[in-house]
Design a protein around this nucleic acid. Sequence first.
DNA 1: TATTGTTATACTCTATAACTATA
DNA 2: TATAGTTATAGAGTATAACAATA
Lengths: 143, 143
Amino acid sequence: MKETLGAASGLVRLTFLVQNLYSEVGRGCDLTVAQAQMLCTLSDGSLGMAELSGSLGLERSSLTGLVDRAEQRGLVVRETDPRDRRAVNVELTPAGTEAVHRFHDELTRRLDALLADFPPTERERFTRSLRRIVADVPAVFAD
Amino acid sequence: MKETLGAASGLVRLTFLVQNLYSEVGRGCDLTVAQAQMLCTLSDGSLGMAELSGSLGLERSSLTGLVDRAEQRGLVVRETDPRDRRAVNVELTPAGTEAVHRFHDELTRRLDALLADFPPTERERFTRSLRRIVADVPAVFAD
DNA sequence: TATTGTTATACTCTATAACTATA
DNA sequence: TATAGTTATAGAGTATAACAATA
């Protein structure tokens, strides 16, 4: 155990911190972590089951249950594609849209607060480094 | 959707990235995420159930099952405290110690690689900012 | 009475394998 | 045959509430 934290430890602790905020804000919006991630992914428009499972990194069979539960709760709807009757599109309901907006706004507020005490230069540098690291990560959470 | 990523989005995506690495490295060591977190927390020494559940942010009843499964797999053992016969100490077995070392080393390697292309000054600045953000986060992963 | 930990129960999340319907 | 999605099944993880044993 060194006296100062290395980059790897810092990254793990930051992840622990952000995850806790994520699930706490989710709980406040009555959303599980998996539901919040799914709704955020659907924010930019409806997706087929295969696309959605790819974005979320889940098996299609796992997604079936996730969509089932979200549909029962009125957050999303399934719509069959008239051009390919095997395909299903998942899209946000008005209630789902409202929930994801509340979630997004509150989480953004709480995350920005983590950097609130940073001098502007340090905050800008940190954000730029972040962008550089996550350049290739899928957009599970957008501005 | 802005053209450039804000700090909040960057933090969420970084978390997504680190979580994926964490579970991937865990899978390589035959550890679930929850198990890896528990073993890392026990790296510095044995803890009682109450302390351990506090560090991990779990209910004590949830921890019971987590410890049960890890004990069945030979990663930890329960030892009763002779001075307080209600209390149970959880500690790593040799196999648990070996597993957590492999996990820790591999994860550190993979996380450090994320910053490998950074110029030294940027890497040092980023790490310093990280330290500042996570100063109060429990030590679920140490150097 | 307060604290430590477990049990009982229920739900979410996830995966693998087998299946149905459509292309 | 190949693809889109679901069903069946199993196991991990988590919480709440009720409980047992000890302090």
